[in-house]
Design a protein around this nucleic acid. Structure first.
Lengths: 197, 197
DNA sequence: CGGAAACGATACGAAACAGTATCGTAGCGA
DNA sequence: TCGCTACGATACTGTTTCGTATCGTTTCCG
């Protein structure tokens, strides 16, 4: 008997929960958080409203789990790849994450809602930290290889690498996917130019 | 008799309009766009609901004008300042804009709402273009001074300069104002390092 | 197979919200 | 001062939305 095994294993629970989160996610992407109403989620998912309230005690709670379920993961850089290839890998991975239509549709809502909902702010912050950890590992690899100064400020470098891509995604027209690719190339080019090997 | 002088000059119109936009702005900043309801704006502003519908034909229209009224202006770089001082000026100005509590409270809402409201997307785009024009002028000054290559891609450089600041504002904790300042310094430092004079 | 738990369907209440309508009042400008 | 226009107050309709309650049915799991 394992401790803390309070995860639901009943397939009925998992099924209905997944259906509702999927429906809510679709609504969120299609028409924004305003469209994620209890009735709309119930209708779209085919799950009864009463069931929804058996899983969450309010609409807010559902929205929190919708965000949690959609925060994307990225692959950390494989071991033994070397600094330059590793950082290329991570930045490219991050750019792909930001460019994915799914996350593009959700991220702005998360950025806004987190302002007035501490629970969502935590999710956003945890996501941020998770990605930072992966990037920091690569930067430390750069230090170990003597390519980066030992006293490098990882936070500032992270902003320098991710900021332009983040900015491009939130401002560029949705059809202009090439913009992000160009930005990635430019960012990396300038990064290596300023920390020459 | 000037043509196209259809701007309302009646002080009553200007007064009530300003009151409503102010109230709506406060609500938007305090609790997000969901809180900007017709009744709430009416109550908070002290202006009757019927008057609100004399000015706008829907809640959406009001929200559009709220955004329009709050898009911040920045000072363009003064003439004769030279390239390096000019770009410092513009980037600092942009950072101050992003850091202002007012715009910090509104920008995320604009970023989100623009996804499903073309009118707001236009406002965001026009704002972006306006700032870009100011920055581009400074970059062209750099080209004229021989500090930047003539074939410089202004869009990419703009993202490089603004992206990290934008990112810092939307992710950093609201109380950490110093983070933006550090980012500005770092961005400029690296910019001048990679385009040495 | 049989009990327990989850689900579906639906109805319901209360409040919020958008938008309309009416009418008397107040303020502006000519 | 006088007419026109904007405004305030308020009531009202219809819809949306949240959240609760009930009860018969299905589904899982031991």
């Amino acid at each position: 008997m394992t401790a803390c095994d309070d995860r639901p294993t009943d397939p009925r629970v998992l099924r209905s929960r997944a259906k509702m989160i999927d429906a809510a996610t679709d609504l969120l992407i299609e028409a924004g958080p305003r469209a994620v109403t209890v009735d709309a989620v119930s209708e779209r998912s085919g799950v009864a409203k009463s069931t929804l309230y058996r899983h969450w005690d309010s609409r807010e709670g559902l929205l929190v789990d919708v965000m949690r379920a959609n925060v994307p993961d990225i692959d950390p850089a494989p071991d033994g790849l070397g600094f330059e290839a590793s950082i290329r890998h991570v930045v490219t991975e991050l750019a792909a994450m930001f460019s994915s239509p799914r996350w593009r549709g959700i991220l702005p809502a998360l950025m806004m809602l987190q302002q007035h909902q501490p629970e969502l702010a935590e999710i956003a912050h945890a996501d941020h930290q998770g990605k930072r950890q992966i990037l920091d590992a690569v930067l430390q690899l750069g230090v170990a290889e003597g390519r980066l100064p030992a006293d490098i400020d990882e936070e500032l470098v992270a902003r320098q690498l991710i900021g332009p891509i983040f900015f491009a995604v939130l401002t560029a027209h949705p059809d202009d996917d090439a913009a992000v690719d160009r930005t990635v190339e430019f960012v990396l080019e300038r990064f290596f130019a300023s920390y020459p090997g």
